[in-house]
Design a protein around this nucleic acid. Sequence first.
DNA 1: ATGAAAGCGCTAACAG
DNA 2: CTGTTAGCGCTTTCAT
Lengths: 337, 337
Amino acid sequence: MVKITDVARHAGVSPSTVSYALSGKRPISEETRRRVEEAIRELGYRPHAGARALASSRSKVLALVIPLRAGIHIPVVMQFAVSVVTTARRYDHDVLLLTQEEGEEGLRRVADTALVDALILMDVQLHDPRLHLLRTLERPSVMIGFPASSEGLTCIDLDFKAAGERCVEHLAGLGHRVVALVGSPPEVYVRQTAFAQRVVQGFTAAADRNGLSSAVHPCEAAPGSARAVAERLLREQPALTGVVVHNEALLEPLIDAFEQLGLRVPGDLSVTAICPDELAESVRVPITSVALPSAELGTRAVELLMRKLGGGSSVPEATLLPPRLTERASTGPRTAP
Amino acid sequence: MVKITDVARHAGVSPSTVSYALSGKRPISEETRRRVEEAIRELGYRPHAGARALASSRSKVLALVIPLRAGIHIPVVMQFAVSVVTTARRYDHDVLLLTQEEGEEGLRRVADTALVDALILMDVQLHDPRLHLLRTLERPSVMIGFPASSEGLTCIDLDFKAAGERCVEHLAGLGHRVVALVGSPPEVYVRQTAFAQRVVQGFTAAADRNGLSSAVHPCEAAPGSARAVAERLLREQPALTGVVVHNEALLEPLIDAFEQLGLRVPGDLSVTAICPDELAESVRVPITSVALPSAELGTRAVELLMRKLGGGSSVPEATLLPPRLTERASTGPRTAP
DNA sequence: ATGAAAGCGCTAACAG
DNA sequence: CTGTTAGCGCTTTCAT
């Protein structure tokens, strides 16, 4: 293995000069830098990650904890992970993958052994058991999602409340008076994952504000249950003309179910969703939707972490991404009297 | 930070004894081990990963390279990744996530800097440009999938040829005489990803062997194209009664399309697939299928790597997992004359 | 602008 | 069964 002293000898300089030429932490003359770079190239030198981590107390690795639980749309997690890795690489960092399963012990392990410099957590719950640990950990972290109290922590997420409102406003603007929310699976509410509740809050608030009649239906993610859900909606709200779907797995089957029940989308029923743009576009009837910006969340999360690692500037505790609604084919003006 | 010398002092032993107590690499008396463990607990000691990697030339980290390209079913990748992480943890290793995007330079980087001890690659192609690099790398690797020549490398995958055969045998056994294969998107064949070709080989060979009339149709993964595919199949093979689908995204839409064309599954048409069991079960008509065992592949890949890292036993260059076909509702005996 | 040298915290001979 | 000690390869004061 070729080491820094080999490079130094080959270039006729000291090891520290090679180190500084690499890190740019102190000025190097043009001539010296050139010689060092050439030596590095000729010898194929690669600094040893462990040695570097030991000497500098920086591993240049971030931990990413991904959720495994039911009710979470896999492609969203995947896209988020890819975006985290890609952005981390832009900052010369790598990403260690952990599963939620490892729990607090897993976080403590990678943090305390200095395997990673910082952590990114997804699927944060209102009273997440990891909150206390994160506050005491000597390493910075960013959470995707909001707990009940984000005091002293850094959180980022789509503004789900605003997203729920935005969908209702859109429907109200089209003249709809009776709306329903098809929500996440019940276990998501039971777990008190904040984002599900927030959609409900926004949905309800906007409906009330606009004088709409509204109802909320938590729903299983099983595509087979779409028909039952559709029937239930119509039974409970016969005058229903506007639907907001916050349940990826149910979106497409629900459209099918409505049409099978003789309701045209958007002719008889306008449907909006909160979901990845990709999904909204792929449905047979492209869905007007508020985007779930998983790639942007990943990028932003890493950027926040880099600022925290940079040390200087303090970062905001809470970052809410404003909802962007894209009109597609699934919504239209109310036609019935 | 509490270090090994602190623990040693606290326990009244030498640092090496603590190290050995931790690694089990030499016998420790019961009494000493107890004292060391207690000291570790009382002080909350965690060995520094970088220091350990430097001194032992083992980072206990595996690299996992995931594909991003079109035509690859995301949940399969995700399930594989989770299984790799979970299994790696059982062997006290962690997993670094890399994207295919980083290319050969990415592999070289993590290997040469000793950031990782070994690598797992997915989505291997027949003439994968990374093959040569893997052979020269000083670190072991395992590939999911088979290149044209696996000389000196370690590969594992489902036996796709046998899987194709198994599906045809099943249909032949039910009396079907005219069968079709709905394959992966054309770009997958163009890239020469081996598994797609192998399914075709197995499908064709088994059809010929059983005297069946057969045809192969590479197909886009766009759900919207299902109808067109279904019509094409029936136009080209009017007597068609058996279909093998090797295209995750098209499976469900295809079933819908057939039924819209007035063909009952399995009444008029028997459908089998090569896909994750989870998908096969979730379709409206549960599909008889050969499982794509991504979780098992992940586990086995890690186990192979661990054996290679262990040094002793040499591992097989090629591992083909035999196909397991599960009968579900989508296949039945041929009814037509 | 560059060098010398002292660690970073741990492992693994080598000794007993 | 346990202790002593020499590094592992790099970063970073401290000098100059």
